[in-house]
Design a protein around this nucleic acid. Structure first.
Lengths: 248, 248
DNA sequence: CGCCTTATTGAACCCCATCAATATCTGTGG
DNA sequence: CCACAGATATTGATGGGGTTCAATAAGGCG
């Protein structure tokens, strides 16, 4: 069932991996993990790496886009807009996530750099050609899509059924888990991180107003569940206390 | 790059399609569309078809499940539960959707028959084996996952940013589009359908209470945007009026 | 018809939004 | 280093949309 030629290719020595790919996270946990050195080299020829400043629009809703990207560092926010200006952030993406809507010209979702972001971009057509040659690529995309679907559905519970306090706690916990690789659902102890979003963005992510976000953060601070420095830097002395706030 | 053997298989005459698959929607729009007649026949040997009554639990959250299914008719609701009993419905599935969480043992989501449901089920292991033989299967799964992701994100806007009235209108519109195949985003005129959910389910889908759902339905009725018969049957004289209610 | 479930309607309350004022941060230039 | 200005965040007062609690009505099925 397997093409023997590709087996040979995959045995090519690691030194054939393009230099820029060697230390890239996307090659291990990201979509590029599905490519062999020769395919990586072919893709690398077409890639452009960019550092993008906070606030830059990466993908406009409704506009067809000609390239996909891997996020190498930073945080990207995905958002949707209603006609009257109300906004909802529908997802956050971190390294080494794949950015773009496969199998469709327009995503109907806007993507914006929430922090400084480094991207590794390549033409849509190149990736689509490779999807036919390397079925593992499609598998990686399926994995990410299903993970994002799980996350989106988790967040629907937060949006639909949680109080403002629980929403804020859930948000802080989400960021803690994604920013600090040491933290996961079982961790004890404390952690600290910078918020990748402004209060306005947090409000748009949680379906709240800026004022409510601010008030609830203040309350969590007064109850010693978090400390805040310079508005953006959060310290969580005991992650379990925060976790308890996520569901009442 | 292509395995010539599979090309031959795909040219096998249509009469080799298993009888039970011939009139099945999943073979056209669903995942089975990726299988050739021989593969369909192999899968058909392992499938069981069941008719399931409203209210039956199909998948329990956290419990590993040994089979996947195609929905042949009816509506399945996917829901999540908080520890204190608060519930959020995170998705609705219609024929010919694929039911189950690929690539993972437990889905952390409960699935329940919202109406009478007919399923075509097959062992997980069988499908996983076929995914390796027929890359098109994975492609179909990716398509559905991305569609569900789009839908989930659309709904996040509804949950996070819309008023109760807009939520109810959005829900009615969603059902109209999915139940009546004639209706889509561009349709004019009217339509009518049965609600597949109770008021309690609608509330859990929209992040509201039963009472609010009821009050908003009453208001829409008083404004002649809908009529209601027997609590469940909705008639929409002008779908455009309803559409306008979805965003204010 | 009678019972039970499901849905509607009413009244009071509360959480969060809104509007408004003040405070803090950040970066720039004197 | 400080002063200033604009953006960002906090805090306060008030009001409204949706929840909660409670009672009534309507549907569904024996």
């Amino acid at each position: 069932m397997k093409d023997p030629k590709s087996d040979i290719r995959q045995d090519i020595h690691n030194s054939d991996v393009p230099e820029i790919c060697r230390s890239c996270e996307a090659r291990h946990k990201g979509v590029c993990g599905a490519l062999n050195p020769a395919q990586l080299a072919a893709l690398a020829k077409q890639t452009t790496r960019r550092e993008i400043t906070e606030g830059t629009e990466l993908i406009a809703a409704d506009e067809p886009v000609a390239s996909y990207s891997n996020i190498m560092s930073g945080v990207v926010k995905l958002s949707k807009l209603l006609a009257d200006g109300r906004q909802q952030i529908v997802g956050l993406q971190f390294a080494p996530d794949f950015l773009g809507r496969p199998l469709k010209a327009d995503s109907r979702i806007a993507a914006e750099a929430a922090t400084t972001v480094r991207l590794c971009s390549f033409p849509k057509t190149t990736l689509e050609r490779m999807m036919k040659e390397a079925p593992g690529l499609e598998h990686k995309l399926l994995e990410q899509a299903l993970n994002e679907l799980d996350e989106a559905r988790d967040w629907m519970v937060t949006l639909g059924r949680k109080s403002a306090r629980e929403k804020i706690a859930s948000f802080l916990y989400l960021i803690a888990v994604h920013i600090d690789p040491e933290v996961d659902d079982l961790t004890d102890g404390g952690c600290s991180f910078d918020l990748p979003l402004t209060r306005a963005d947090i409000a748009d992510f949680l379906g709240l107003t800026i004022e409510t976000v601010s008030r609830q953060l203040t309350k969590l601070r007064q109850q010693n569940i978090i400390t805040i420095a310079n508005n953006r830097h959060i310290t969580v002395p005991d992650i379990n206390l925060l976790r308890e706030c996520c569901e009442g």
